[in-house]
Write a protein that binds this DNA or RNA. Structure first.
Lengths: 206, 206
DNA sequence: AATAAATTGACCACTTTGGTCAATGATGAT
DNA sequence: ATCATCATTGACCAAAGTGGTCAATTTATT
């Protein structure tokens, strides 16, 4: 199916993936331009349509790719880690790693859920039926909630924690320096996050 | 300049404004389609180009409109209210009122800052030079921070509060029922917000 | 009924679309 | 050096969409 695409060198393959992801995130399936994708990826349109027989196939490939990425993320959750903050920190690190390779892949997953082109809607729905919230629950499975203060609404605490993580990572990604190496940047931001994590832990925990 | 547009009935005017805002938010200036705007607003393209002489004028009008809206919001901040939570609640109420008329207007302000079409970039820059962060600082001016616990990092507390507000309103807007009346919906969500506000107040305050 | 004002959508020249394919370039074996 | 294989290119296509116009029609006002 995608043999010619797999044969590509990793760097080029990544460039194509990210160019396509960016374009679909910004404009949606119908208005995404294969011309722009090819140009942004630094390849000719002929090549793009050699790797993928048409726009729809490319889109479908991306969805499957993004889903396997997110499933791998869920698989790597360390269920033996009972501390919520430590567990989220691990997941954050892995997300950072993914995002250093594919900066927009989580946005892509978010936007395709709202995609409304009839050409691809059915396919998307079929893919997400199975995936929905499966891993999201996993994140909180087996967490030791007795560490939380008794006079606190734990559900609200988790929501605030989530929104804080989201806000923090949004801000961090804006400042991402694409020239520096991932492990360097990763260290910096995980350090910064530590401060927020400690801040909330002090408030939430006994 | 825009006489014919001002003569329109309020409902129609609002429809045009929101259709245009939505289109520009989603696709940016260059790729926004005047055909789509007219169709979405329920008017003919001829009318659209009667109200605004061209796409650029329409875009510029929207920017000015959005800026006056946000300036009015800043003007209405009650500086005599020294409690941060109460002050933010007031602002939230006013934002809700604005958003019930123009659901996407804050997104519009956010996205035009990243607009990179040469046709309009200069205009945008000139508009935002003066506005930047002017009102954002106002929100926190004169707030009584002695109410906060002494062992707390107030800057982080404000950030967490902001991210929580953002997360909450994002979620609330997704569930917005367009059929119900604004005051009804507003009451419901301000009630829900109260719970989050109290939750954080209990943690942050002495 | 007559006049003025507002609205329409077919129409224009031009650009962009997704997709094709003959030609060219690169690679490695002989 | 020759040849055969494979990857890559971009000019090219019909079709669709673009921002914008304007004569003709509908609606409102007198």
């Amino acid at each position: 199916m995608y043999e010619s695409f797999y044969k590509l060198k990793a760097i080029k393959r990544k460039a194509v993936l990210n160019a396509a992801i960016d374009e679909f995130v910004q404009y949606g399936f119908e208005k995404a331009s294969t011309n722009s994708i090819a140009q942004e990826a630094g390849i000719s349109k002929g090549s793009l349509f050699n790797y993928f027989k048409n726009k729809k196939q490319l889109f479908i490939y991306l969805i499957d790719y993004a889903i396997t990425v997110i499933e791998k993320l869920y698989d790597q959750i360390d269920l033996s880690e009972k501390d919520l903050f430590k567990r989220l920190e691990n997941i954050g690190l892995q997300k950072l790693e993914i995002q250093s390779a594919h900066p927009n892949i989580f946005d892509f997953l978010k936007t395709i859920k709202q995609e409304d082109s009839n050409q691809v809607k059915d396919f998307i729905d079929s893919k997400f039926d199975s995936l929905t919230n499966e891993g999201l629950n996993l994140i909180y499975k087996g967490v030791d909630y007795t560490k939380f203060r008794d006079d606190i609404d734990i559900e609200k605490a988790i929501e605030v924690l989530n929104w804080t993580m989201f806000g923090f990572s949004e801000r961090a990604l804006k400042n991402l320096d694409t020239f520096k190496h991932m492990d360097e940047v990763g260290k910096k931001y995980m350090n910064e996050w530590q401060a927020y994590s400690d801040f909330l832990k002090k408030l939430f925990y006994k």
